[in-house]
């Protein structure tokens, strides 16, 4: 199996974190997109032109990070990140869904390459992202993890965004999770873990590589 993409992508990061949390980072090969983003090879593998995508050993592809993350969780050894208990699983998956549907679109407004207007970026910083944080605060369990009392796929979904908060959202006046005690408690715990520290280092390195590539171009 081979996972295509780059660590700067929080969606690629989610899949990688699933492997890391299961202690299975060697189980899947990692690769850059052949020919670069939206190359013919990329579009043939994933017609949405997004990353990540997973090439299975039989040559078929899976797309969409949440789907890939759940698939990797199911087939790799290690602790289940989608809990076996139905209530617990539903809660973790609902948190992932809130991240994808409400928080991610706001956070993507800070990506310079997307060409959003100043007004759109400001709206994300002052309205949509705070609203998304409020929703998360409403639904998360509270404590060291987002869902229940151990790592789940929900943590894998949110952790890669911490780099984007620090690097991009902050420039637009978003100061961490603000006055939201449950998210703050979660952050205070996870930010001290190697899981998060390593994730930040991978994303930073990936950003440097991207900037060097753009400069050369």
């Amino acid at each position: 199996m081979k996972l295509y993409g780059a660590h700067l992508s929080p969606y690629f990061g989610r899949c990688y974190l699933v492997m890391a949390l299961k202690g299975q980072t060697d189980a899947v090969e990692l690769g850059d997109i052949p020919g670069g983003m939206k190359s013919p090879a990329h579009m043939a593998a994933n017609p949405t032109g997004k990353i990540p995508y997973l090439e299975k050993d039989d040559g078929t592809y899976l797309i969409e990070s949440q789907v890939i993350a759940e698939y990797l969780d199911a087939i790799l050894e290690g602790d289940a990140l989608v809990p076996e208990d139905l209530d617990e699983a539903t809660h973790a998956l609902m948190i992932c869904r809130i991240i994808d549907t409400y928080m991610a679109p706001a956070m993507e407004r800070f990506w310079a390459n997307r060409g959003y207007s100043d007004e759109e970026v400001k709206k994300a910083a002052t309205e949509s992202l705070p609203a998304a944080f409020d929703y998360l605060e409403h639904f998360i369990t509270g404590g060291k993890y987002l869902s229940g009392d151990s790592w789940t796929i929900a943590d894998a979904a949110l952790i890669p965004w911490l780099f984007h908060m620090e690097k991009f959202a902050k420039q637009h006046g978003v100061d961490g999770f603000g006055d939201r005690p449950k998210l703050q408690e979660w952050y205070a715990h996870v930010s001290q873990t190697d899981i998060v520290k390593d994730s930040m280092v991978r994303a930073e390195k990936s950003l440097e590589q991207l900037l060097a590539f753009l400069q050369k171009k």
Partner: peptide, 24 residues
């Protein structure tokens, strides 16, 4: 998961991924 009756979640992990991709 919670209601009785035939399951709508395929047992094979790849089939399960395909079913969930359709919704996605």
């Amino acid at each position: 998961g919670v209601v009785g009756g035939p399951t709508l979640t395929p047992a094979d992990p790849y089939d399960r991924a395909r079913a969930s991709l359709i919704g996605r």
